[in-house]
Amino acid sequence: MNGSGIAEVARWSTRDLPAPQRLDVWADVLTSAMIPLYVRTSNPREFEANMTVVACGPLTVVRQSGTPHTCGRGRSELARSGKRQYHLMMSLNNTYHVSHRNDLCLAPGDLVLVDSDLNCGIDLVRWYEFLNIGVPVEWLKRWIPDVGSLVGRRIPGNSNWGAALAAYLVQLLPDAVANAPVPHSVLADQVGALLALIAHEMSGQEPHSKPAERSLRDRVSDCLAQRCHEHGLTAEAVADSLGISVRTLHRALAGCQQTFADQLLDARMICALRMLESKIFSRMTVGEIGRRAGFADASHFTRVMRRRMGVTPQQLRMHRGTDSSDTAARNAAESDEDQ
């Protein structure tokens, strides 16, 4: 490949593979094209995945699509990894869940920067179309000295520079990159420049908050993680348990660009997701799981889950294979009542 000539596009698909081999082969393909990742699904015989890869100067542009599954990096995958790198990820069609420093629910167009040196979990609950940009560490540091300030944070696709980057990345189709009339380094530099602008834009969201505010925010988060199951939990109750005034609590959260209501809803969602994904709770209906997580009722739980994840609690549970047959029947009846 030369600077502005035709680059080779690599293509993979599980379509022509025997069903029992698809997961293992796909995991090998991911390791070869990007980094070691585990791949899990409750329906291995229905698993399908496709990928195209092209080099764009220092970057690697990867487009993926396929059936729902979970993937990520744990201790084993980290141990088998080589050189550290960053990955800029964006869904093109559906909401998905990422656990990487933070628990994030990302809508199409939202971006997240992932560090290959850290644990990561990705939950794709519908047919997905995905963009993953491999970014060398040293190259990105030329644009953003403090890269860590972006890692694991949601970059909103509707923010000023987030929208600009999302719109640009959508155009980076592998075949278009391969035949670009300008040097690939120029295409890559547009990504770096936009990320630098995003880092500056987002620097006002938290780094300007005071250390005391961030410390108190973390104490509130810890308290909510323990008490989110309490129905009717109020800011007053949390402030009282922390030995501070309600005004101090709200001021600290506002300094971190957050609100008590959002923090509480996030805590309840995380609690509910953990139960939905655990076989320990497989015989519990989704309505009961919602109530145990602190939601007012099953309908509220379903609405919040659909808004944030793009699927209902029952659909997520069936995808993860943690719904027993008798519980599935009760869930179906419960769903009919909600409607």
Rank of each mutant, 00 (worst) to 15 (best):
M309L: 14
L37K: 06
R307M: 09
P136E: 02
G72R: 02
S91C: 07
L172Q: 02
G134Q: 04
R307E: 12
T31H: 11
R291V: 05
A196R: 08
S245T: 09
A237D: 10
A180L: 01
L131P: 04
S324H: 11
I122M: 08
V54G: 00
L111W: 04
V246P: 10
V114H: 04
N158E: 14
N160A: 11
A225P: 10
L17R: 06
A328L: 11
L197F: 14
Q21F: 12
A49D: 04
F295V: 04
L172P: 00
S76Q: 10
R153S: 08
G204K: 15
R84T: 03
T322E: 02
E288M: 11
L17W: 11
T312H: 02
A332M: 14
Q258W: 03
L169T: 05
L169I: 05
T52H: 06
S324C: 09
E213K: 13
D123I: 13
I289H: 00
S325M: 15
L216M: 11
T70R: 15
R219P: 08
I35A: 01
S91V: 11
L224Q: 01
R308M: 09
V135N: 00
E236G: 15
E206T: 11
D297M: 06
G310S: 00
V151A: 02
H184M: 07
G82Y: 02
L131A: 03
V29T: 07
R63E: 03
N158L: 12
W161Y: 15
V246D: 05
L88K: 00
F295A: 01
T248S: 10
V170M: 10
Q21K: 15
A188T: 01
C120I: 05
L242N: 01
E213I: 15
V125W: 07
D103C: 10
G192D: 01
R11F: 07
S65A: 07
M1S: 14
T41V: 12
L216C: 02
Y128E: 04
M1D: 13
Q171T: 14
D103S: 13
G321N: 06
P145Y: 05
A329E: 14
D28S: 13
M269E: 04
V137K: 05
H200Q: 15
S241I: 00
C105T: 12
E77Q: 10
E337A: 14
V238W: 01
R283Y: 14
E8L: 13
L30P: 00
K141W: 06
A49R: 01
G82W: 05
